Simulated assay, not measured.
Amino acid sequence: MTALHLWLRHESRTTERRTPIVPSDARRLIESGATLTVEDSPQRVFPAEAYEAVGCRVAEAGSWVTAPPDAVIVGLKELPDDPTALIHRHIFFGHAFKGQPGAGSLLRRFLAGGGTLLDLEYLVDDNGRRLAAFGYWAGYLGAALALLHHRGLLTAPLQPTSKEELDERLRAATGEVRALVIGALGRSGRGARVALGVAGADPTCWDLAETRELDRPALLGHELMVNTVLTTRPVPPFLTDKDLDDPGRRLRTLCDVTVDVGSPLNLLPVYDTPTGWDEPVRRLREQPVLDLIAIDNLPSLLPLEASTDFSAALTPLLPDFEVGGSWGRCRERFDEAVRELRAGKGESGDL
């Protein structure tokens, strides 16, 4: 069997500071027999020198496009637009299997080059639970930003910080607030609850039992809401435009941690584009006021903590890359998406 060659790419998104593999875990992979090439990146929380010190090769940013064909390209967020034909096996969050905007274009790039997308969203155990996820820190950041904004203490543009500094700001934002966390028992929900607790808030916690038959007046009766639910099957949305226009609505701050914009499974179809670091808050209604936070790389605001936890979960899985199990399920989901794409273009399969 050919030795595993992992190629850690530079993230093209300027606000992406995380890494899926931290230097200490890179050392463990090298000791297990893998080869690691790490692209230089001015924004990654760990400099290239930290990887070089543990035995990684260092390459120029963006050079993955000319990497050996057997290299496995590892990243987190979206690929740049070029090349149009992707020949490698890629590991990252592709967001391409549920009909999201741009999904077809990305899959066609893999078809054109013969490459494969191993989407980290579908790296799951036998029960469908993600094996490597940023959910806890996404929930933590989402609730923290929502609370700070609700108190008038959120400043833009957002900047990466440390948990210690963020918690200090949260402790300064204490006070009564009627908050709701939906999906409270999951990773993201747990993070949201902990962050609100740092600020002294005791949120209402809803999960499957409470959302099966949603009490929408009760939802609208909260001042602050954090949604952490990402569904894989059609269910009624938690909020609609009609709900936002309810004159009795007390809801003033809404944070959508999942940011499933464009998906037919979106549980909050009340906005059509995410917010970002430069403008983290968007006003959805003026009377009464309702503000939205919907940032799709929240954990990058705590890049050290988020990267360390994610890498600890992902690294033990990499030596068994594509050896059945969870990687096999990833590959099967890609193959299924390709078949669906072909079927949508006619029996000939022409793309």
Rank of each mutant, 00 (worst) to 15 (best):
S63N: 13
V124T: 11
G276I: 04
E121Y: 04
E210A: 14
P203V: 06
G197C: 06
D291S: 14
H95K: 02
L351R: 03
R151D: 07
D260S: 10
P101N: 09
L76T: 14
F310G: 03
R282L: 06
V181C: 13
A132W: 10
I91L: 13
R216I: 08
F93V: 05
D320I: 00
A50T: 07
A195M: 09
G104E: 15
R13M: 13
P274Q: 05
R13H: 15
G276T: 12
W206L: 01
R193V: 14
V338L: 15
W137T: 15
G328V: 05
T155K: 01
F110P: 05
D256V: 11
D272G: 08
Y140N: 14
V229L: 08
N127S: 11
I182H: 00
E347R: 12
T308S: 13
I73R: 03
G102P: 00
G99N: 10
S300E: 15
T37I: 05
W206P: 00
L304W: 01
I87N: 09
A53K: 11
L166K: 05
R193I: 06
R250N: 10
G324L: 11
A172F: 07
P274G: 03
I293T: 06
I295G: 08
V270T: 06
V338F: 07
L8R: 04
Q43Y: 12
P47S: 09
E176A: 14
L107T: 04
T232E: 15
V338Q: 02
D296K: 08
R216G: 05
E210F: 09
